[in-house]
Write a protein that binds this DNA or RNA. Structure first.
Lengths: 340, 340
DNA sequence: ATTGGCACTCGACCGTTACGAGTGCCAGGA
DNA sequence: TCCTGGCACTCGTAACGGTCGAGTGCCAAT
């Protein structure tokens, strides 16, 4: 039970060495590479204790020790201090992101940046519709009794859906609809949309009410279906940099990454920005991601996060470095979107 | 030089066996599994000739033969007949694609479908802007002297860019701009946009001309930058299904797939629809895709292709099956977009 | 032109051995 | 009580050597 100061120090040393060398670490090399002030024999005793407690394990009898998920967890919680980024790194982030011309570009640039900085797989979620506000709603009249509904949010997201009309419309009627919809929704958060949509039909002439109803339905549908759905991925190739990272193959990992739902589970579900979350190995409920860790965080300007972003890599990753990179990128992206 | 009928038959048998077993094929097993009417010894002679001509090769002395890129090429050009899809497959494609609600959805569904049908990596390019026509242009006035330009094409693609205004504008002025821009561009193909944009400034009042100029500039920029740029990928996990498929690792392949430019080179550059193109191994100019083949085709309703789609897999792939799946999906997608 | 026979090549497989990194334990010392 | 050097032990890896067999090329006979 008792993990005194030195044992923790030994665990830290094991994690650090294992992360950098990718090989089980033994008592002798530990004593050489770190200033622990004791002999290998003493370290061996500590290691035996750490193994007893489940923080480290031996791949086989005559090998050194590697950290377990539990060991990494302790390391992340108590032993690591967030490594600040270097000045050039900060500058690189800034200049790279500042060049973005629209939301797509922001997301694309940040996900690439994150992949490059951490040398891992990066995931960035688009700002959730429900947490954005309506900037403008546009109705475009298509040829045959159909209407294209274009929704533009204050974070720059654009969603479109075709609405099948119950009756054909004239241009002036479309204009009336457009005015009414914008009057009641522009500036409002989309989370409040259901209430607003409720009262929409009352704002137009009698003969337009059925049209307004189907418009409202489609709007709510879009909100429900696409609310959190979009994510962007980069750096998949980083998974294969060192073949030793994954016991069997990376197949299950790639499969998991193809599932949007899974990605959203990993990155999403974030309420307040800038609270880093680290999920290590088995802590990922997803089968197939048992040998990976996920570092994620919410981004956004205000109190509430707009969406999440993060990084996925082998359990054996550089946690301090990854954590600081993820946090830094999230901050910049949040600021950037606030300035839009 | 002379490749008589039987030698071709032997080559076909070798390709078919190698594709299905993934192992070098020898003369004896060839004689057993195929009705060639001759003894293994004769086949050996033919194989020696085929090797002499460069159509097959031996991994090492005491092994069977495998096809070379040149061998696959001959197979694709002269020996394979496109395998028609089964009725259930056709139906599956139809029902799966018909459920799409907008362009994003169409692309997402087709790329997944293609990956699933071929069990390989699928790539679908968004309809090229330059080959689409303008359905509507919307201008949304942002707070501080900026304008959001939203471009909607007849294929359902939506692009947006923020325009930095030289001077602040009133709502009526924005309306004037909107009317003018739509009047001159709606219905026109975007390939003709440069000419149209030229004359835009003349269509509005004097004081709006500088604004119109910057608007035109941004429009052309968007066209240039994003014209062909967007693609969607699926089925990356299929690369790892059989570890034997790639001599070293799939790392270079994954890296190549991360580069949009590379993907566009593979899938794009297509003028007429429904002409299948097969690029085998070394024929891909891209370093890192030397062990893969790409089957691609243009899709679109009319004479000219809107964009391309295709599939990437190990050189040792089921060419007839892949080719028919790619062609079928392209047809359905083309029809679907024409119906929009 | 085709075929059966035959000698040859060479990678895959398997058991043996040697090596060495790393461990656990123990007895002696601070 | 805690630390340390010494030592026997374990076990995975690498290297070696021998066998096996699939597959070949060649040749003489049909």
């Amino acid at each position: 039970m008792s993990l005194d100061e030195r044992k923790l120090e030994v665990l830290r040393a094991i994690v650090e060495d294992y992360v950098s060398t990718h090989e089980p670490v033994g008592s002798k090399s530990l004593a050489e590479r770190h200033v622990l002030g004791v002999s290998p024999a003493t370290i061996r005793n500590d290691m035996a204790a750490l193994e007893e407690e489940g923080y480290i394990a031996q791949p086989h009898t005559s090998a050194g020790r590697i950290p377990t998920d539990k060991g990494y967890r302790l390391f992340v919680d108590r032993l690591s201090q967030v490594k600040p980024l270097s000045a050039p790194e900060r500058r690189a982030i800034q200049t790279f992101l500042d060049g973005a011309v629209d939301l797509d570009d922001v997301v694309r640039r940040s996900v690439r940046l994150l992949a490059q900085l951490t040398r891992q797989v990066a995931v960035v979620q688009y700002p959730a519709l429900s947490r954005s506000a309506v900037r403008h709603l546009e109705l475009v009249h298509l040829s045959d009794g159909r209407l294209l509904l274009v929704l533009i949010t204050d974070t720059g997201r654009v969603e479109q859906r075709v609405v099948q009309l119950p009756t054909a419309l004239g241009e002036e009627q479309v204009a009336e609809l457009r005015t009414a919809v914008n009057a009641s929704l522009t500036g409002h958060r989309l989370a409040d949309a259901p209430a607003q949509v409720e009262s929409l039909p009352d704002s137009v002439g009698l003969e337009l009410r059925p049209v307004m109803v189907s418009l409202g339905t489609v709007l709510l549908e879009t909100l429900a279906e696409r609310s959190e759905e979009r994510v962007m991925l980069a750096g998949t190739a980083n998974l294969t940099r060192s073949a030793l990272d994954f016991p069997r193959t990376i197949h299950p990992v790639l499969e998991a990454l193809e599932e949007q739902v899974v990605l959203l589970k990993l990155i999403g579900e974030i309420e307040t920005p800038s609270t880093l979350r680290v999920r290590i190995g088995e802590e990922n409920a997803v089968e197939g991601l048992r040998d990976t860790s996920v570092v994620s965080v919410g981004y956004g300007s205000g109190e509430q996060a707009l969406a999440g972003l993060g990084v996925l890599g082998p359990t054996r990753m550089d946690y301090p470095g990854t954590m600081s990179a993820v946090r830094a990128v999230a901050r910049y992206v949040g600021d950037l979107l606030a300035r839009q």
